[in-house]
Write a protein that binds this DNA or RNA. Sequence first.
DNA 1: ATGTCATAGAAGCTATGA
Length: 273
Amino acid sequence: MKIATYNVNGVNGRLPVLLRWLGEAEPDIVILQELKASQEKFPRVELAKLGYQAIWHGQKSWNGVAILSRVGEIHETRRGLPDDPDPMQSRYIEAAVNGILICGLYLPNGNPRPGPKFDYKLRWLDRLIEHAATLFETGLPVLLAGDFNVIPTERDVCKPERWREDALFAPEVRDAFVQLTSQGWTDALRAVHLDETIYTFWDYFRNAYARNAGLRIDHLLLSPMLAGRLVDAQVDIHVRGWEKSSDHAPVWVMLSDEPLHTRKRAKPRHLAA
DNA sequence: ATGTCATAGAAGCTATGA
């Protein structure tokens, strides 16, 4: 089973890109962020033509998250985090699909730092960490995926020194990400590409994509049951080069149907020797 | 500070968020 996360940066403005990628990549389940569309303006019919059913949490102009499936029913379990810091912002959607609990999230950007937007990001992370702990403890197969707006380590940014004060790389935010993954989640892309430079986002400024001046901020975190089924994780980097593309590229994991007893689970970074 | 996009409304440009 192939599961992807993609910050589309406007689901209607980028619809041709999204449909082209879906046709090419054929993911089974897709988690979308930054729909930038109100609830009634989601392109349900166009996606259904490609065989995807969908649930979505829209919002006019900003945010918005969705889950697509071409492998059976989407059983929504919640939208918004428990004690969400701002329920008006559509940033979280959760559903059981094909035996996996899919958690789609769009974390606040948090800039400028310091300031109220940064405080909001920290509160959101706090709520996410608490909810993730609850989900983890169920022992179920759970996937946390989306645009985290977190650069986990220096390896995940082209020029770390330029990002020291940025809300995507701030110590408080990176600490929170470590706190989250330390619950036992596997960062799938990093587990597959241990020592590689691999990015998921290139901004529109300064020809960033052509220079590969990117960031790794879109993540797929696997509970132990799913980590035991991890076959591959990749970024569809070329999609970022398409005309009218999002500033993010799609990121996906391939999971086997059965546990892979031969593959060792990736150790959290803080436990590594 | 800069740069490039999409969106919405004050509208055919400007403000905003990223």
